[in-house]
């Protein structure tokens, strides 16, 4: 058995290693701590948002090894060894690729006014990068379908599609 936290009820924590936004961290977590709560409450990375905590809104979307997932439905302990990118790391993701300041998708969101209140925005951004990494969406219709896991109550949807299309036409995030 690789890991055993001990008997039920004990508040035993487990040591894990995560690379978050390029920085490797050794962290002790309780098994019931979600990746989302770890980021927000323990690591002060509040950019990743809690909108529903049940995988029904997409505000908590982060990239795990380049793939977008809902961080609210993932236990931190299960991500041991993973590379996590949050909205706070998108700019540095761009920097690593030789680009300055903001990631192109962040710039496109500002330019196209692809947000209003800003609360779903980190999830929309990470989801957009995930979508471009996946490479399955090519038309506006396909972008819409592939972004449907990210709810925007302010209704910035058409501007978000514009922003993603814009970046895709520039050659994508990477």
């Amino acid at each position: 058995m690789l890991i055993d936290s001990g008997s039920p009820g004990a508040a035993g924590t487990i040591g894990i290693s995560l690379t978050i936004n390029g920085e490797r961290r050794e962290i002790q977590v309780a098994p019931w701590t979600t990746l989302l709560d770890l980021l927000r409450e323990r690591l002060d990375l509040t950019g990743t948002k809690k909108g529903c905590d049940h995988g029904q809104c997409g505000a908590c979307t982060v990239l795990v090894n380049g793939t977008r997932i809902n961080s609210c439905l993932s236990l931190a302990v299960m991500q041991d060894g993973a590379e996590i990118t949050t909205v706070e790391g998108l700019a540095s993701l761009a920097a690593r690729e030789g680009k300055n300041s903001l990631h192109p998708i962040q710039e496109a969101f500002v330019e196209h006014d692809a947000f209003q209140c800003g609360y779903c925005t980190p999830g929309q951004l990470c989801s957009s990068v995930g979508l471009m990494n996946e490479g399955h969406a090519h038309s506006r219709e396909e972008i819409r379908e592939a972004m449907s896991g990210n709810i925007c109550r302010c209704g910035a949807y058409t501007n978000i599609v514009d922003a993603i299309e814009d970046v895709m036409q520039q050659g994508g995030a990477r």
Binding site: T46, V87, E88, L90, V110
Partner: peptide, 21 residues
């Protein structure tokens, strides 16, 4: 004009009520 609070919102630096420590 693009939103002046845009950069804060797209970088995750904009803090909401339940995020102040």
């Amino acid at each position: 004009i693009s939103r002046v609070d845009g950069p804060a919102k797209v970088t995750g630096l904009a803090k909401y009520a339940g995020e102040f420590a």
